[in-house]
């Protein structure tokens, strides 16, 4: 037990994390590219959907993007919680660094959702429950980013962001439920949803591979951001001087 605590404290020290993430990032990105290649190959060799035709191939990017948008929000809230409770600087930075990545995936999910909607519904935008919740999620991300940028002090801003992320994560199920409720009241139920009740295994497999690829991508890009932010915020600390001093000679 004691050893686990020791390992944990070592890992969350900025210096050690900077070194460790530097070693890990190429692996994450490398494995991501390999898995992505499998996913892309599977996505375009899967049989054509008898209802939606070829347009269903958008789902192979839309569903992973939507999934990532929620996963990253939860990660942000968990990191924020850890940062608030245990005052771990690395957790605070993780929460802050997650926000733009999550916002990018949310925007991607919205864009691909409406590109899927145009041939299916005839318009780019329908106030469908999923698209609407995704839009509100984007607003929540924008709020987090705006709040971080409005506060000058890094630590203070990160702690404010953590609280906002926690408030958001409590609210997301409520928002989701209310939007579902609202859309079933206002729209005919015949509207086809993005998720199929049961997907053919040949279609499901590439989708799962794409989701796995994105899940591997996230720590890679996240660590890259964290490293840059650590360097900037810790530039007065001894380890940065030691690190760059060594590299500089």
């Amino acid at each position: 037990m004691n050893r686990i605590v020791q390992f944990f404290h070592k890992t969350v020290s900025p210096e050690y994390f900077y070194w460790l993430s530097g070693k890990l990032i190429p692996w994450f990105i490398g494995i991501f590219v390999v898995v992505l290649a499998f996913g892309v190959w599977g996505a375009f060799t899967a049989p054509t959907d008898y209802q939606q035709g070829e347009s269903y191939r958008i789902i192979f990017v839309h569903v992973p993007a939507a999934y990532m948008s929620m996963l990253i929000y939860v990660c942000m809230a968990v990191a924020g919680f850890i940062g608030l409770v245990w005052h771990i600087k690395l957790a605070e930075i993780t929460a802050v660094a997650s926000a733009p990545i999550g916002a990018a995936f949310t925007a991607l999910a919205l864009a691909t959702g409406s590109l899927w909607g145009k041939p299916m519904w005839g318009t780019y935008w329908v106030w469908d429950a999923r698209l609407t919740s995704e839009l509100i999620l984007l607003f929540l991300y924008i709020g987090v980013i705006a709040l971080y940028n409005a506060i000058d002090d890094h630590r203070k801003a990160a702690r404010a962001v953590a609280i906002l992320a926690l408030v958001g994560v409590v609210n997301i199920p409520i928002i989701h439920f209310s939007v579902e409720w609202w859309s079933t009241l206002h729209q005919p139920a015949t509207l086809s949803k993005l998720d199929q009740p049961s997907m053919h295994p040949d279609m499901l497999r590439p989708l799962l591979i794409m989701i796995v690829a994105c899940t591997i991508y996230f720590p890679g890009i996240l660590f890259m951001r964290i490293r840059a932010m650590l360097l900037r915020q810790e530039r007065r600390s001894r380890w940065v001087a030691r690190l760059l001093g060594e590299e500089g000679t």
């Binding site: 509100i136 929540l140 709020g143 705006a146 906002l164 958001g168 609210n171 928002i175």
Partner: peptide, 9 residues
């Protein structure tokens, strides 16, 4: 900006 999305429900 922070509060309006939370007002949706």
């Amino acid at each position: 900006l922070l509060v309006l999305p939370l007002y949706v429900p």
